[in-house]
């Protein structure tokens, strides 16, 4: 009888554990899919922290790693280290992509303001100039302007439209320029003159950001090349001398490889930090 109760207890615990694990995995995968689909539909947000893509990549990538480990190595547990690696790799990657998008949006917005300047200098009223430019714009700024234009048509308020555009494009020099544009228009000041004075500082800021970005890209390329090349050479060496790989597995040379990997990782981090301007 005691054995029966023990068996029932164990079975119950195992069932609860299995159900919990099932729901945990199912909810995690479901959430990862929802966040992933939303990310694909709306793209990266540029002025709020973005954790959704990191979560999606980590969860779905880990499941894939477990499956690959089961299929090729016979034991899914070999795929477990993939989780922290995927999270660590996707975090900076998502930050990098969000930064790229932010710079792209600022460039598009600057181009839009130049167009606006040209049209207002030619005597076109501001709302009409915005309508003309929005029709031919694509990309994040074009879509944002299109939605803002619907607000302008429905509510007739330029201030509402610009407030909406500001909320989508985030803060910064461009945001201040849009506020100034709205205020200048409401006060009856010359929008063209206002833009003549605002655009040079925006151009200077954009140029500075471009130079910093180009510099960091060149440093990143150097670091990547320097970090990958020795391992490629090792791979070529071991393909011609497989017995060297056996020695690598045996002990001290393996420790050397791990030490080299960590030292290079430190070098990459140090190099990236040195290239920072701000």
């Amino acid at each position: 009888m005691q054995l029966f109760f023990h068996g029932v207890s164990l079975f119950g615990l195992a069932a609860i554990g299995a159900l919990t694990l099932y729901f945990f995995i199912w909810m995690s995968v479901r959430q990862a899919l929802v966040l992933g689909l939303r990310f694909l539909r709306t793209g990266l947000r540029i002025h709020r922290p973005e954790i959704g893509p990191v979560y999606t990549v980590t969860i779905l990538g880990s499941l894939l790693a477990l499956l690959m480990a089961f299929l090729f190595l016979g034991n899914p547990l070999w795929g477990l280290p993939a989780s922290p690696v995927l999270a660590l790799v996707s975090l900076p990657l998502v930050s990098f992509l969000a930064e790229e998008k932010r710079l792209r949006v600022e460039r598009e917005a600057l181009s839009f303001l130049h167009g606006l300047h040209g049209l207002t200098q030619g005597g076109v009223a501001l709302p009409e100039a915005i309508r003309l430019l929005t029709d031919e714009r694509e990309g994040a700024v074009g879509q944002t302007l299109g939605r803002g234009l619907q607000l302008l048509n429905s509510r007739g308020s330029l201030r509402t439209m610009i407030a909406f555009v500001r909320s989508q494009l985030g803060s910064g020099p461009l945001d201040a320029c849009l506020v100034g544009l709205s205020l200048a228009y409401e006060r009856g000041l010359s929008v063209s003159t206002f833009l003549s004075e605002a655009l040079p500082s925006l151009e200077a800021e954009a140029e500075m950001q471009r130079r910093v970005k180009d510099l960091r890209r060149s440093v990143a390329a150097q670091a990547a090349f320097a970090a990958i090349l020795p391992w490629v050479l090792i791979g070529v060496l071991f393909s011609f001398q497989p017995e060297l790989l056996e020695e690598m597995r045996s002990g001290s040379v393996g420790v050397l490889g791990l030490g080299a990997f960590l030292w290079m990782g430190l070098g990459v981090a140090r190099l990236w930090k040195t290239s920072e301007f701000f």
Binding site: A226, P230, L233, I234, M264, L266
Partner: peptide, 15 residues
């Protein structure tokens, strides 16, 4: 400092 020594060590120590 960070890439040349480990690269040389990785290539030459096994050899």
């Amino acid at each position: 400092l960070f890439f040349l020594p480990p690269a040389l060590a990785l290539v030459f120590v096994p050899l």
